[in-house]
């Protein structure tokens, strides 16, 4: 973490690269989950593949976890350093006059996403690990049957209106995080040129459509179980 990563710009770039990786991951994650809207069979197949493929489980998944942890640890480190760089605050500070709410509150939207990720892990990931590696059942079947368990479990998870509410709120904050973050990541890695207006509109579409997709999935299974 010292050396190269002790400079402000290097940290920014590392932050941006981890964020771009997460942006890519969300596309894959949404694509898999979207199958659950159309076909129980397809969702079960996709989930079983993602959950048992060794390359995904033992190479990509650790990278993903490292990416998430790196991103929020670095995010909070930067936030604390940045706060410390103004030791006396303004009596009157009109931040809204020159910058968007999203850009000024990345730590708040990020904090909500982090809380969500913890809940999400307790919901899906920890039980998965338990079934597969503690109990040792790699079959992916509902106990005593030869039917896949994934779709069944998914519907069960979204039964509670409170949980669906938490999901919706978290994804709205993810949208706000990305509305600033998407284009910010490109600026951080030094990408600001004639394509920047495309990056900005792509970022807007991405930050609305991806969270909206997750919200639709949560609501769909809440009302359809």
């Amino acid at each position: 973490m010292s050396g190269f990563l002790s400079s402000s710009i290097a940290r920014k770039v590392a932050m941006a690269l981890s964020a771009l990786f997460l942006i890519f991951f969300l596309i894959i994650h949404l694509a898999v989950n979207l199958t659950s809207l159309f076909s129980e069979e397809a969702f079960n197949q996709a989930s079983h593949f993602m959950g048992t493929n060794p390359l995904i489980q033992f190479a990509l998944q650790p990278i993903l976890i490292f990416g998430v942890v790196f991103h929020f640890v670095m995010g909070f480190v930067l936030e604390l350093k940045n706060r410390a760089s103004r030791n006396v605050n303004y009596v009157k500070y009109n931040g809204a006059a020159s910058a968007s709410w999203m850009s000024r509150n990345m730590a708040i939207s990020g904090g909500v996403i982090l809380a969500f990720i913890v809940i999400h892990f307790l919901d899906f990931w920890i039980p998965e690990l338990n079934t597969k590696y503690v109990v040792g059942d790699m079959s992916g079947y509902i106990e005593g049957t030869t039917n896949y368990r994934y779709y069944e479990e998914l519907q069960h998870k979204f039964a509670s209106p409170v949980k669906v509410g938490i999901y919706v709120v978290a994804f709205v904050l993810l949208a706000l995080h990305l509305m600033h973050g998407f284009q910010s990541a490109f600026q951080s890695i030094g990408f600001n040129n004639k394509y920047t207006s495309c990056v900005k509109s792509l970022g807007k579409w991405y930050s609305i459509l991806i969270p909206l997709g997750f919200i639709i999935i949560a609501l769909f299974h809440h009302f359809n179980h």
Binding site: S8, K12, L78, K81, G95, S98, A99, S100, S103, S184
Partner: peptide, 10 residues
């Protein structure tokens, strides 16, 4: 001791 840019654009 300046802070780090987060691209707010202010």
């Amino acid at each position: 001791g300046f802070g780090n840019c987060t691209n707010t654009g202010a």
